[in-house]
Design a protein around this nucleic acid. Structure first.
Length: 490
DNA sequence: CTGTTTTATCCACAAATCG
DNA sequence: CGATTTGTGGATAAAACAG
């Protein structure tokens, strides 16, 4: 277990650092995924390593900062798994000799961001998500799709700071994934923590709420758990849709929620759907949610995306001048990556990084090549309803017959096919699918799945039918959001 | 059309998995 | 631990089929 590092000689230390590094690399690779690893961590190397401190070299200044900010914590954690003695990990910018990056003007060390100073951390409730320092109101790019939500969040934050009661509780924000609700939640947390000396904040995901609740129950510590909830001035819960269908957790959550709301505390919730659309939520609870304000963050339009890119690039250039991302490239990125801001940022980061390492202006060709995988990977979230509709259409039957009781071949075949597709393309369970097909039994769905498997194994024609149906669904009649063309052209 | 076979469906219940 | 999901075997009645 312990590789003792005698610092008497350079020899053994050198050896050990290499060993540690290769171990670290493979662990990081699995932890972060191949892609991220290749982009950001591929070219790191060990500068020095002692028992308590590891120094990693990065090929560019930007690379150093990015890795420090985004992966620092993970890397430290992994290092500790290897050698628990490690206290700190340092990233340095040590250009390879042959790569002359000569903007020697100033490679500013840009204040290695303070890891949340103590007084602030104290007022974060236990189990809170540490707020991401780069998600503040100032960093939020406001456009017409999100300015209402932005204003509301801002207002709520200010009210908490001023210790005013909310006009409406809860504030419910919803939008598809990656459109900025988490950013807004973060911004509220920051704003409150920084501008108020006393306000206590609890910021958690619905998932972790549930997890904690369950373990508390298991260990009979529900009292402590409840106390944690009681003493906050502002409660933020992210991804509320996770506790749909989880009855016990739901009850507990809304009990806490009501308690806070009755005391005039602020509660901000987020989900990927509106309360009305989240199924598996009790009516009583839904009514309570709708009692507050419900705001949607709409899909981004291209101007907003351009503005976001603009800002990212500007900030980047302030620090690493010489990186050029042309207008054509910006429009390309903004046009192609429409669904998700996180992806948009990831893409531009990648391009900037490449531009920085090569010290060449980014060309449209390079951009297209480098982003190919991101662009093709247009995951579409399918609903059972959509599957039913499309399948019914495909076979020329009525959608009502999907739910109806009739069992004629011409109806049963499409119905079973739809069930099968629903099972394989969504994460719904058998009972859930059955419910959505006119309240059928879950074993009926299982039977349907087996039938389809059997049939498509025996009959290539049918097999092809199913496959093309799946393709049709995946590419999708765009009911919401994806215009892969983005800019012009028809 | 009638008698038979096939099978889509539901039910009761058990085992496995999840949060 | 309790809830939910995945399975099993069996019963029934609606379709499909054979004559």
């Amino acid at each position: 277990m312990d590789k003792m590092v005698s610092t008497d000689f350079g020899g053994p230390e050198e050896h050990i650092s290499q060993e540690v590094w290769s171990q670290l690399r493979s662990m990081l690779q699995t932890e972060l995924g191949e892609k991220k690893f290749q982009i950001w961590l591929q070219n790191l190397y060990v500068v020095s390593a002692s028992d308590s401190e590891v120094e990693l070299g990065c090929p560019t200044a930007f690379n150093r900062d990015y890795v420090n900010q985004n992966f620092g914590a993970v890397i430290l954690r992994v290092l500790r798994e290897i050698n628990p003695g490690v206290r700190t990990v340092v990233f340095t910018f040590a250009p390879r000799p042959h790569l002359s990056i000569d903007n020697s003007a100033h490679v500013l060390p840009r204040e290695a961001q303070a890891p949340v100073d103590a007084s602030i951390a104290e007022r974060l409730g236990p189990g809170s998500i540490p707020p991401n320092p780069s998600c503040t109101f100032r960093d939020f790019v406001v456009g017409k799709s999100n300015h209402i939500a932005y204003t509301a969040a801002m207002k709520a934050a200010e009210q908490v700071v001023a210790a005013q009661k909310p006009q409406f509780t809860p504030l419910f924000l919803y939008s598809g994934s990656g459109l900025g609700k988490t950013h807004l939640m973060n911004a509220v947390v920051w704003h409150v923590l920084r501008n108020s000396a006393s306000a206590r904040v609890l910021y958690i995901t619905a998932e972790s709420f549930m997890r904690r609740f369950i373990t508390a129950m298991k260990e009979r510590e529900t009292l402590a758990f409840k106390d944690e909830m009681r003493n906050v001035d502002l409660l933020l819960v992210d991804d509320l849709q996770f506790i749909a269908d989880k009855n016990a957790t739901q009850e507990e959550f809304f009990y806490r929620f009501n308690e806070l709301a009755d005391q005039g505390k602020h509660v901000i919730l987020s989900a990927d759907r509106s309360p009305a659309q989240i199924d598996g939520v009790g009516d009583r609870i839904r009514a309570r949610l709708l009692h507050g304000v419900t705001l949607e963050i709409n899909a981004t339009d291209i101007e907003l995306r351009l503005a976001i890119l603009e800002r990212k690039i500007e900030r980047f250039q302030a620090q690493y001048p010489g990186v050029v991302i042309g207008d054509d490239v910006r429009r390309f990125v903004a046009g192609r990556i429409a669904s998700n801001i996180r992806e948009l940022e990831g893409a531009i980061h990648k391009l900037m990084y490449i531009a920085d390492t090569t010290q060449q202006p980014m060309t449209l060709d390079t951009a297209r090549r480098e982003l190919a995988d991101v662009i093709n990977h247009n995951e579409r979230r399918l609903s059972v309803d959509e599957i039913k509709r499309t399948t019914a259409n495909f076979y020329g039957i009525r959608i009502a017959d999907m739910d109806g009781p009739r069992r004629t071949r011409t109806l049963v075949r499409p119905r079973q096919t739809a069930m099968y597709i629903a099972k394989s393309l969504t994460s719904r369970s058998y009972p859930e699918i059955g419910k959505r097909f006119g309240g059928r039994d879950h074993t009926t769905v299982m039977h349907a799945v087996r039938q389809v498997e059997r049939h498509s194994a025996a009959d290539p024609v049918y097999h092809e039918e199913v496959q093309s149906l799946i393709r049709l669904l995946k590419d999708g009649a765009p009911s919401q959001g994806n215009d892969p063309n983005g800019t012009s052209k028809t």
